[in-house]
């Protein structure tokens, strides 16, 4: 005698489950230390999806910065080097110099890339280094507890700008991607975000291209991810995304800043 319940179970068993989502193989199944809602997590995931989809795991070398993503190598199942604060692009230059056929990328926050490492960033671009910079711009120093970054919007209160960022004494937010785009050594410069599904898809496309462009040996790619820092901003994950759209995206609008032309893409 079969009850109604048994019948339903039987029906479910007969349904062929289609897998619509899974953790990329190269993203390790470990607990991450990132705060809930933080853009670092999503960016890690799409990066590793790309590595798997392009099947380049055995050819990728990543460089982790000093910042919240300092332990990225604990989460990504690829060869990685941890660099001193700000020096990721110099380390990547060294790696690429002796491993020119590999895919090399740095993963850096705004303090790492746009403050202490500005010289290394600009000169790597100016030399036209063939690696990718993944630049997480959350407008704050997450790791050290929410201090002002060079990219912090005017008026924004942080631990070191308690009365709000004052342009007269603290300078204006710096647009590193825009700056790099002006250098002939920069091949591709784009600004993306990962705050909703559509944005994630776009960011993934941009990152995929940036990986593929390395094989052309035509210069540096920078993919800026305009991101959030719920903890540093003292907002909930949802509020932080709203705040990001309102205050960060107006300063750092998403989209390509420098895209290669058809001729540029001829290898």
């Amino acid at each position: 005698m079969s009850t109604q319940q048994d019948l339903i179970c039987e029906q479910i068993d007969n349904i062929k489950m289609a897998k619509v989502y899974e953790r990329p193989d190269s993203l390790l199944d470990v607990r991450m230390h990132y705060c809930p809602g933080c853009g670092h997590t999503t960016t890690h995931k799409i990066l590793m999806e790309i590595v798997d989809e392009l099947q380049i795991k055995n050819e990728v070398i990543g460089v982790a910065p000093v910042g919240c993503s300092v332990l990225a190598y604990d989460y990504l199942d690829i060869d990685m080097q941890q660099a001193a604060h700000g020096r990721a692009t110099a380390v990547a230059t060294g790696i690429k110099a002796v491993q020119p056929d590999k895919y090399v990328f740095t993963y850096q926050g705004d303090g790492d890339l746009a403050a202490i490492g500005t010289a290394e960033t600009i000169h790597s671009a100016n030399r036209g280094e063939n690696f990718l910079i993944v630049f997480i711009n959350n407008g704050i120093y997450g790791m050290t507890g929410g201090q002002m970054a060079p990219t912090t919007p005017i008026g924004e209160k942080t631990a070191t700008s308690p009365y709000g960022r004052d342009r007269a004494t603290m300078g204006a937010p710096i647009d590193i991607t825009g700056l790099l785009a002006q250098l002939p050594g920069t091949f591709y410069a784009t600004r993306q975000s990962v705050h909703d599904a559509k944005a994630v898809r776009k960011a993934k496309k941009a990152l995929t291209k940036a990986f593929q462009y390395q094989k052309l040996n035509k210069g540096l790619c920078i993919v800026e991810i305009v991101s959030n820092c719920p903890s540093g901003w003292k907002l909930t994950p949802y509020e932080s995304n709203q705040w990001m759209i309102e205050h960060m995206m107006s300063l750092y609008p998403p989209g390509d800043v420098k895209a290669p032309s058809k001729e540029d893409l001829q290898s």
Partner: peptide, 26 residues
Amino acid sequence: GVVLQAESEVAAINMIYGAAGAGARV
């Protein structure tokens, strides 16, 4: 081999780190 004039000694020593870490004699 590779010879690269870095933008500073700070950059140079970190390039050494990267290249040594990638297995080269530097």
